[in-house]
Amino acid sequence: MHLASSLSASLPAWLLGELDDLPAVLPTLEDRMDLVNALADRNWREGSGGPFAAIVVDATTGALVSAGVNVVLASGLSSMHAEVTTLSLAQTALGRWDLGAEGADLELVVNWRPCVMCYGATMWSGVRSLVVAGEGPLLEELTKFDEGPVVADWAAQFEARGIRVSIGTRHDEAVAVFAAYGDSDSIVYNARGAVD
């Protein structure tokens, strides 16, 4: 067997075709989450991955730095969650692994509290703020995804590291996306099956 020496993931064709049409500036948290929820809903309907999307913006100006979706199914890579994809695209665009370098105040906007993997990826990315539509077990109940053992004080842990957290922007709209996904026959790609 030949050992792999590289890996690759890309945004799905449907999003690649729309990148140039995304707003260059998203001035409010609601504008930002509206885009995230729209991308998340389209993503699962297109079969690229789960109902998850994220963007990185300049927290002050709202300038869009990157947009991404969950591409686990499209890439065949279990780590290609929306947060990992979007943070990686921002790091590639800016040419640095630390998104907080040079005084940058970048913000990750995602349609739910990060899973256990994305929790670490977000914390170590250098973003200075995190905006989520919601938190808690409702996502798992609606979608049957296993989000892993996220610590109870997850938001406080971000805050302790200088990362501002905002919870609740467009909560109901995010829940509607998850409910539609849960009612569909889409693949829930937990390793060895869903968690009860």
Rank of each mutant, 00 (worst) to 15 (best):
T61L: 07
A74Y: 14
A93H: 13
E46R: 06
W44S: 05
E102H: 10
L94W: 00
L73Y: 11
A101Y: 04
R45V: 15
M80P: 00
A74V: 09
V84S: 11
R96M: 10
P51H: 03
G50R: 02
R42Q: 13
V57G: 05
R96S: 15
A63C: 10
N70C: 14
E107Q: 14
A53Q: 03
G95Q: 10
E107Y: 11
R42G: 01
A90I: 01
G50S: 14
V71S: 05
M80R: 07
T60V: 13
V56D: 06
V71K: 01
N43H: 01
S66N: 02
L77C: 07
V56S: 01
I55K: 06
F52H: 02
L64Y: 01
V109K: 08
S88V: 06
N43S: 06
A93V: 05
A104P: 03
V69Y: 04
A93G: 05
G103S: 09
G103Q: 11
A54S: 15
S75C: 08
L73M: 13
D105I: 13
W97G: 13
V69K: 07
R45T: 13
G100T: 09
S88T: 14
G47R: 11
S66G: 00
L77I: 14
L87P: 05
V56E: 02
A90L: 04
T86C: 00
G50V: 10
T86A: 04
M80E: 03
I55T: 00
L89Q: 02
G100S: 08
V84H: 08
V69G: 02
F52S: 04
R45C: 10
A59H: 08
A104E: 00
A82I: 04
A54K: 00
S78R: 15
G76E: 06
W44F: 15
L94D: 07
G47N: 13
N70G: 05
G95L: 11
A54G: 10
I55E: 01
D105G: 07
S48F: 12
G49N: 06
R42T: 12
G50F: 01
E83N: 06
L89C: 07
L73D: 08
V71C: 05
Q91I: 00
V71E: 00
A54W: 07
V56I: 15
T61R: 11
S75I: 04
A59N: 11
V65E: 02
S79V: 12
G62T: 09
R96I: 01
W97V: 13
G103L: 13
N43L: 08
S66R: 03
E107A: 09
A93P: 03
T85N: 07
T85L: 09
W97T: 14
A93K: 13
A59S: 14
A67M: 05
V84C: 08
I55R: 01
S75N: 09
A53M: 05
V109E: 01
S78F: 12
A104Y: 08
G62C: 07
L108C: 12
I55S: 00
M80W: 09
E83D: 15
E107M: 14
E107H: 14
T86K: 03
S79L: 14
S75F: 05
A104N: 12
V56F: 02
